[in-house]
């Protein structure tokens, strides 16, 4: 199957063709992610959905014992399935937001640096190096200590610091595309930088940004869940998967499922997205390892 086959067929056929081109592992990844996302999206429409309703008389109902609470209830008698679904929407929503913002910032910075080169390139990439040396978690700890932890602080911190990887890739591609004939011709004819970048270079870079973003979803989910767990992200009573695990940790002896169930949800999404993006990341890891040597 070649790329042109994908382009010419109608949309539905394209999806089928793309799925046929996947390896079994990649198909497993798609299935896992789809299953978890479907659960999060569909549960809010079910009659049992009540993520905040407390019922102390029905606290600590174990999973699979009560039809009204298929995944059991927590220490306040709140339905775990509802909280898992809402927590998933919150966690995954934050991940998507962070990844999209990072991809956009990184793409713009990388395109500008790669196209113009020179001093702008030095400044932008120098700043990128500085950011790479600072672990995000320490930056977030410092900011949270200064202004108090909140979910928006976490999102803004991640949006402001995590784009470096995207910028580097976008810059590299922009630099090589800049001197190719199909970009040189409009440049010689007097096209502006904005026109040249947006019409002739950006489309080539956008595909790479999409690939990078897909392989970043797992990493960002791990990161934001850790921050939620530490109390530096989503704040109660709003649930998120990381927060559910941290709430459950206090009851690990009597009700381990409170932590284990959301933990499995994180694991499924991360392993699923990793399986899907495996073929890109394996190549990239090897390349960057070789470069560093």
């Amino acid at each position: 199957m070649t790329d042109t086959d994908l382009v010419r067929k109608p949309p539905a056929a394209r999806v089928v063709a793309a799925a046929a081109g996947l390896t079994p592992l990649e198909r497993t990844g798609v299935a896992l992610v789809t299953a978890v996302v479907l659960f999060c999206v569909v549960t809010p429409f079910l009659p049992l959905y009540a993520p905040y309703a407390q019922d102390l008389s029905r606290a600590f109902v174990p999973p699979l014992t009560d039809a009204a609470h298929p995944l059991g209830t927590d220490m306040l008698g709140r339905d775990l399935a509802s909280r898992l679904a809402l927590g998933g929407l919150v966690s995954l929503g934050i991940v998507l937001l962070v990844v999209v913002v990072n991809a956009i910032i990184g793409m713009v910075v990388g395109l500008l640096a790669g196209y113009h080169g020179g001093r702008l390139d030095n400044v932008l990439m120098g700043w990128a190096d500085v950011q790479l040396a600072m672990p995000v978690i320490l930056v977030l700890i410092a900011l949270s200590a200064a202004v108090g932890p909140s979910v928006w602080l976490m999102v803004v911190t991640l949006a402001a610091t995590y784009w470096v990887g995207y910028a580097r890739v976008a810059r590299g591609t922009a630099m090589t595309l800049r001197d190719r004939d199909f970009v040189l011709v409009p440049r010689i004819q007097g096209a502006s930088a904005t026109w040249t970048i947006s019409r002739h270079i950006a489309p080539g870079v956008a595909v790479q940004m999409l690939i990078l973003a897909s392989s970043d979803i797992g990493a960002v989910l791990l990161l934001t869940s850790s921050f939620d767990y530490l109390g530096l992200g989503v704040q109660p009573p709003v649930p998120s998967w990381g927060l559910l695990i941290s709430e459950g940790q206090k009851y690990i002896r009597q009700a381990p499922y409170l932590s284990v169930v959301p933990g499995i949800a994180i694991f499924l999404v991360v392993i699923g997205t990793n399986l899907i993006s495996q073929r890109f990341t394996a190549e990239r890891d090897l390349r960057s390892a070789r470069r560093r040597k």
């Binding site: 797992g218 791990l222 869940s225 850790s226 767990y229 530490l230 990381g242 695990i245 941290s246 940790q249 690990i252 002896r253 381990p256 932590s259 284990v260 933990g263 994180i266 694991f267 991360v270 392993i271 990793n274």
Partner: peptide
């Protein structure tokens, strides 16, 4: 190793507690 990397550190630690302590 890859499967371990798909588990957040805090959850893996909790699983260890669950198995080896609890």
């Amino acid at each position: 190793g890859s499967a371990r990397q798909a588990i957040p550190d805090f959850f893996f630690g909790l699983l260890l507690v669950l198995v080896f302590s609890v």
